[in-house]
Design a protein around this nucleic acid. Sequence first.
DNA 1: GCCGTTTTCGGCCCGACTGTTTTCAGTCG
Length: 571
Amino acid sequence: MSLNAQVASILYEISEILTIKADRFRSRAYSMASQRVTALTEDIRNVAERGELEQIPGVGKSIAMTIEEFLDTGESTVLQELRESLPQGVPEMITLEGIGPKIAMRLHQELGVVGIKTLEEAARQHRIRELKGFGPKKEENILKAIEEHRSRSTRFLLGEALPVIQGMLTYMSGCDAVRRVEMAGSARRRKETVGDLDVLVSSTDPETATAHFVSMPPIERVLAQGPTKSTVVLKNMLQVDLRVIPPESYGAALQYFTGSKEHNVKLRTIGVKTGFKLNEYGLFRRHNDELVEAEDEAKIYEALGMMWMPPELRENTGEIEAAIEDRLPELVTLDDIRGDLHVHTDWSDGHASIAEMAEKAAEMGLEYIAITDHTKALGIANGLDEERLMKQIDEVRHVDEMHPEIRVLAGTECDIRRNGRLDISDEVLAELDWVVAAVHSGFKMEEQAMTTRVVEAIQNEHVDTVAHPTGRLIQRRSPYALDLDAVFEAAAERGVMMEINCYPERLDLSDVNSRRAKEHGVKMTLGTDAHTPSELEFLPMGVSVAKRGWLEATDVANTFTVEKLLKPQKG
DNA sequence: GCCGTTTTCGGCCCGACTGTTTTCAGTCG
């Protein structure tokens, strides 16, 4: 985890515990500060050394001191004391659906519950229903929540959730009572992982729409069902919220349920200061409840004195200020993307031929793809040596000739060895149109050595981009220790680019790191890393990361024509 | 705890659903 991410997570945990303790305003302050630290494009240690921590929005004297303490000692006394102030088992209990701080506290005090295990025993022995304000239903729901907690993995990858939500949108639009249907929440913001799904429906007949929703085939359990809001759990343990909204409030609801929470809080605070009230039904004048706007999401933002912004930006990381000052970036879109710059074939560990990959890419409307198979250091992936790579170049040229509808580039995903050298000779690299360099081994190297390794590779005159630069696998493998600022600096100097890998579990660089690379003057490339034709469809995932990283078309090399892309531009 | 084109003190976003109650607290987003 980067230092910034570590600081952000400390602040977030403090915020969480303060929420448990019902200290909502202090909790919000820490949560806002955590968001801002996450979005910082500079190493927070540099900011601290300049004495400018308090210039970070949301960071005042007190939080600045907490950050400094953490930077000096690696610990936070505020957090430690807060952790110790919570009774045993309470943090664990509130991870269960339907149990919050109040109930967890009472279960601890009145029944001696110290965790999920003892909670389950208490429920099975029917001791919970004896408590005032509790009943059999509550007991039953606690047992169900424990069961779901156990079978549920953490969060879902965006790439797993999007097809599910697409299926639901199609299903819901098949209901006559449904006028419009759209995804909201973190899926609409294209966050790399989502905790649950939000589906928004406009209808004048909410009962029919809701009934249609809760009778969807893959439902495991209905958690709640009301006229405007229902919650279900699917068999794969994904939780889905449905909101039914009258057509005239659709824009307000879309804004509201898209979030993020911090973005909305900030927006409403601005509303309060300028005499408005904003909720899911519309924007109202505070003094007389007169409706100002509700149908059109963009008009709500405009009425609040700012430009509409794409959902990918709505994380309260400076987008509201930028919108007010009319300096939002013009984000790159999928339509801007002309090619895919990281594609495997059956020459190494892919499952389709060069021609099959090219044909699928052409079908998708792409103008070019780069064939970038693994090299010999990756024996397990049947990596190519110089001899086979030369043969593959011939084959790529042949396929390119046979497919005038798309330009097929000869490339490689060349392994960066531990000493920073590439495992293919310069003579052969010189024959290629496109060189992707990547680390595939030695993930445990010290930060300094790993940084030297990657920077060394960037110095090779043939390298165009560095694939999956941090090596992280979402929720499975941490990024390797790497001084990203040093890497970006070297890359900017040499005109080498950084990849946003579109593979759902990689998305590497991440949104925040892409934004950071841009600040260093580094351009980005998108690569699906496809090993089958259908995986070429991961491209939109990478575009989402680019958008969340505030990137414009000129920041992403895949928006270039093939001529511009291949023109030598290194200094 | 943070913040200030009313403010250095006094605010701080807003509503739906459940389970248990006879009017609402707790949870969730």
